[in-house]
Simulated assay, not measured.
Amino acid sequence: MPQKVRGVVSRAKGRPVELTTIVVPDPGPGEAVVDVQTCGVCHTDLHYREGGINDDYPFLLGHEAAGVVEAVGEGVTGVEPGDFVVLNWRAVCGQCRACRRGRLEYCFDTHNAEQRMTLEDGTELTPALGIGAFADKTLVAAGQCTKVDPRVSPAAAGLLGCGVMAGIGAAVNTGGVSRGDTVAVIGCGGVGCAAVAGARLAGASRVIAVDLDDRKLEWANRFGATHTVNAASTEPVEAIRGLTGGFGADVVIDAVGLPQTYEQAFYARDLGGTVVLVGVPTPEMRLELPLADVFGRGGALKSSWYGDCLPSRDFPMLVDLHLQGRLDLDGFVSEEITLDDVEEAFARMERGEVLRSVVRL
């Protein structure tokens, strides 16, 4: 039978979110109901609330989640009730042109649950990134459930569902950081600090963290930055060049997503180096670069979607690294809160006071 549970809903642009009752249907074919244990508060949820994704209100927010599978629908074989899972928003189809070429991380037809969760009056909800996990339970496509070692803290594991995976993947998967590389990361919030951690995991010899806020630079130090640059008082391109023998970094990761930070990343890389854009720009942003510089500097300009990850491969691997003591996932959890605290958590996030607030249910 459908279940009535608590969920955090955004009804209109600019309005505070509200905790209300939602209806979760029984799972249909290819679907699963997950008992949510934790869910991180991500900037993407704030973008949904502010209409920055689309205007398909009301939204059921939350997507960086971990929990236990409660029930599965017909035809589901990959997970079963009782499995501890991290939710992902890349449930690959296996059939599109990217999947047929073996590039599952670029699947063009990732799928979500066919059924919709609703308000009590029957109004259909749009789940954030097809997940909607600021709720006691959520309905997802079974392919959005990735089994990981249950020994990991749910609060830490859930963050792999978006921001931490995006940052680590930007360095390891998209940027291809390798042993001895020099890396610069512009923007040291949750995604940027994860990029720092990813670069160190990959064996970078020098990781330069850039931000306007000394507090965030301290966070970056905790995750392995070897040098920090406060861009409020120091010109970042010159600083990065000065720390790399005058050449620039092999890989520069823009975890902010503004035209000015992308331009800094472009000029802060070595000849033949790589720029990775993982910070999410807004639709109105425009970039202008001299085409001769684009040609003359060579290298690669890349965008990183979800850290170019394959959840079934990357989530268990990163959890294992954490359990081995090689990746501090717990360090990304600034505080644990309740569903009632989501609106204030958005405010703390905007003020740069936390890496991640995590809702514990």
Rank of each mutant, 00 (worst) to 15 (best):
T234N: 04
K216N: 10
S233G: 04
G163Y: 04
A204G: 03
L217K: 03
A170L: 05
V185L: 12
R179Y: 15
V229R: 00
I168M: 06
G176F: 09
A220H: 02
G224Q: 06
C162R: 02
V183E: 05
A204H: 02
C188V: 13
S233V: 15
G169N: 08
V164T: 03
V207C: 09
A197F: 12
N173G: 11
G187P: 07
G187S: 08
G161R: 09
A171W: 01
V185C: 12
V164A: 06
G163R: 03
R215G: 13
R206C: 13
C162A: 03
N230R: 06
L160S: 07
A199N: 03
A199R: 00
H227C: 06
T228D: 01
G203M: 03
I186P: 04
L201H: 06
G161I: 08
G224A: 05
N230Q: 11
C193G: 09
V191I: 15
N221P: 00
V207M: 02
S233A: 14
G161E: 12
T174L: 01
I168W: 00
A209R: 02
D213E: 14
V210F: 12
A184V: 07
G167R: 04
G192C: 13
F223G: 07
V172C: 05
I186M: 14
V196M: 08
F223M: 03
